[in-house]
Structures are given as C-alpha cells and as structure tokens.
C-alpha cells in the first residue's frame, strides 16, 4: 500500500504549546480523518504539511518522492484549504478566480464557474459581485471548497471543512470527497481534520487520532473497529470489567467503555455486550483516555 504522506518526527515549538514529534502515514487513494479535540495540534500539523507554517524539526515525504514543501511542483499537487478566513473578506468570486489562476498552474476557471453554480454561489463572471464577508459561514466555506476543488490536484488537505457546514452540507461534502477520489481512481487522496467525526464516518477510510500535540493511534477504520470493542454491562459486573477495559464510565445502573479486542472473550464471560464501536464512539474513548493519561 502506497502512502501519500509519510510523517517522521515533525515538531513545532510555540510559546505555550509543543507539537510532536508526530509520526504518521497517510495512505494513498483513501480519505483520512485527523481526529482530535480543539487545541490538539491538528491545524498546526496540517499547516506544516502544506507549507503554511514552518516546522521546528522532522520531515515529511510526499507521494513517495518529494520532500521539499517549498517546491512549487509539490505545492501544485496539493489542494489546501483552511476553514476560516481563507480568502480576504472583501474578495469576490471574480477576485478569487483571478488569484487562484495566478497562484497555481492547475486552476480551471470553467470548473470553478460550474461548481459555483452547483453550490448556488453565483457566477464569477457577473458584473455585480458579492463580497465574501456578506455570505453566511456555510456559503463562505462552500466558496472555499469550490475554489480548491477547481484545481486538478492529487491530495486534498482540508482543515476542519465540516465545522461551518450544516448536516445536509456535510453529507454533500462526503459525496464531494468520493467524487474527488473516484475521478482519478487510486491516484488521489483526501486528508481532513475534525473534532467531531460522526457526520463524516461513512466516508472515512483511515483515522489518525491526536491529543496534546501527539498521535495516539492510527489505522484503517475497519481494522480499528476490530482492534477495539465497545462494551456495555450492568453495574453488577462493573468492578470485574473495569480492569479489563481501556476507558470506563459507569453509574448506579450500568457501565460502558472501550476495550482492546484481546479482552473481548474475558469480557463476554462476564455477561456484557461486546460489539464493534462506531468511529465516533472509538474517538471519544481514545481521546478521553489520552486526556486521563496526560
């Protein structure tokens, strides 16, 4: 299996936060979700990977062959987008199209017009243009997406794209990812960050979990769902079950938590319900454990 990015020991020192060392791989041809709470370091990592922020140490290998994120050829292959304030607020569809065309080699104006029409944003060729500042958060995000999707890139890197979108728009975002991947079957990849994976579960292939600037777990979703199990039981079994579990939360009537698959048989013997977790349940479990361990 090829990797679109191999991250080795990337670190970044800020006054009151340190990222790293981050070691992770982003597999090629799939959608990877970078999951973590606010402040975990997701945006910093993404910014570093796309050359928006400089790193203090470590390295990343892109497409199995490129190492220098300042190389214009590499930058052209990556479609980066932040979730807020990506473009200046006084820009219009027209200025965005003009600047995107100047900023990259693979911007397709016709495709941008088509996406703007599809997302009901207007026409970049209209005489009267609307400022980005006058749009709702959701429409502004859609504009950013239209811009980045109008480039023929091989890697889409989106920082919290779902945050300002309503559930309907998130569903559409999932479709957009699948469309993006299917268009160049196997040669394109998507990386996006989120603090809430539930609306994006059925498009996520690979997950990287971050907490306090470090990667705490990663893997293909199907494998993760087999390595970790969701456990429910009655309070009566709580005491026996707790030491077998990775995360545990219980009250007077029942308990629940995540356990390693290796413990599943022992837990079943205690008359508990053991099943595969959703990615959301797994995230909560892993991130909660990381918080407790800190």
């Amino acid at each position: 299996m090829k990797n679109v990015i191999e991250i080795k020991g990337i670190t970044k020192h800020y006054k009151d936060f340190t990222l790293g060392g981050v070691d992770a791989v982003i597999p090629c041809g799939f959608t990877t979700a970078l999951i973590g709470v606010n402040g975990a370091g997701k945006t910093t990592l993404i910014d570093i990977l796309c050359g928006v922020t400089g790193k203090s140490g470590g390295e990343a290998l892109y497409f199995g062959e490129m190492r220098d994120i300042d190389d214009p050829a590499l930058r052209d292959r990556i479609g980066y987008c932040s979730s807020m304030n990506f473009f200046p607020p006084n820009w219009t569809l027209k200025t965005i199209a003009d600047s995107m065309e100047l900023g990259f080699d693979n911007f397709d104006r016709a495709r941008f017009t088509e996406l703007c029409r599809r997302f009901k944003l207007g026409d970049p060729a209209d005489k009267k243009q609307k400022n980005l500042a006058k749009l709702s958060d959701g429409n502004r995000m859609r504009t950013y997406l239209a811009a980045v999707l109008s480039r023929d890139t091989e890697l889409l890197v989106l920082d919290e794209p779902a945050s300002s979108l309503d559930p309907l728009a998130r569903d559409m975002l999932c479709d957009l990812f699948r469309e993006y991947l299917a268009e160049r079957d196997g040669e394109r990849s998507v990386l996006f960050s989120t603090h809430n994976i539930s609306d994006m579960e059925n498009v996520t292939d690979y997950a990287v979990f971050m907490s306090h600037g470090k990667v705490i777990a990663q893997g293909f979703v199907e494998d993760l769902k087999q390595s970790y199990q969701l456990v429910h039981g009655d309070a009566a079994q709580a005491a026996k079950a707790k030491p077998l579990m990775m995360t545990f939360s219980g009250n007077a009537t029942s308990f629940e938590g995540i356990a390693l698959a290796a413990q599943a048989d022992k837990l079943r013997a205690l008359d508990t319900a053991v099943e595969a977790p959703t990615l959301q349940q797994l995230s909560v479990g892993l991130l909660r454990k990381a918080e407790q361990d800190e």
């Binding site: 980066y80 932040s82 304030n85 473009f87």
Partner: peptide, 14 residues
C-alpha cells in the same frame, strides 16, 4: 490576517 494562509499555500509561496 484573512488570506494569509491562502497566500502561503500558493505555488510560489515566499
């Protein structure tokens, strides 16, 4: 400043 990240992600960067 809004736009700052976009400019830094462009092909020619600095």
């Amino acid at each position: 400043v809004p736009g700052g990240k976009f400019f830094r992600s462009t092909k020619e960067g600095f």
